[in-house]
Amino acid sequence: MLAMRELSVGFAGGLALRRATLSVARGERLGVAGESGSGKTMLGLACLGMLPEVAVVTGSVRFDGGELVGAAERDLRRLRGQRIAMVFQEPLSALNPLRRVGELIAEPLRLHRGLSRAAALDRACALLSEVGLPDPASRLRQYPHEMSGGQRQRVTIALALACDPDLLIADEPTTALDVQVAAHILALLRALSESRRMALILISHDLRAIAAVTDRLAVLYGGDIIEEGPTADVLAAPRHPYTQGLIAARPTLSARRDRNAPLPTIPGTVPALAHLPPGCRFAGRCPVELPVCRSTRPAGNPACHRGGP
């Protein structure tokens, strides 16, 4: 349904995304994992045709056969909110504080679907109940500030679902939430994707969130997709040294370690856009680096000159 081919996004400082190729089928749940500066947010914005105007974009993103790169704003607007919708990290900044929740959800329905006010509010009520908010009828009259963080995120999800999108992009949807609330929201996203046969792209730095929701996983580092595969396989047997390091560096509850022994780490820090190495982006931090890694971009999956274990 969505096919990204050789997509590069460049800024004055360097490439935020380098020749990314990725696809999502109908009803499929794809996780995009990466740290800050990995290009994961740019990847999400590209799927909406919402990349910043200063970005130099090459390659292609096709949605249901239509090209998004270079498409006219008018055509993109017809897709956004209707066929492709997005949920952001901070629900409070995604909701107009001066409008009641019911009006917020009704707005796209009246605009895109031409529903009457009463019909749109009815539909909004059904959506709020679908995302698991108790007593949806009285919620319609509340303002965003009257709700908790988890409830607000449910509202933004209801808003995103209003026009029955085929693809939902969620960019760090649970980062601002408490662990238990986060677990509920993730379960909700998964259930909605299943019941509606809606494709989902979950963008997150949190591998546990991705493991809980997605079938397939793409790992981003420094603008490159460095590894891709079924989520369970990648997490159980990562093949790229970066993915391996990332999984090892994550503190776990099960293995209580010796306090005198340090936790495993990835040395160094994610380089800034302008200082990314020209070959493999992970060169300089990689424990199994070869001379060729510095100069030549590795191809394949995993994108590693060692070709994985």
Binding site: E35, L246, R250, P251, R259, P262, P264, T265, P267, T269
Partner: peptide, 14 residues
Amino acid sequence: DVSVQAQVLNLLLE
């Protein structure tokens, strides 16, 4: 970031 968290935790432990 996750890859940096462990470094800072190690520093605090040390």
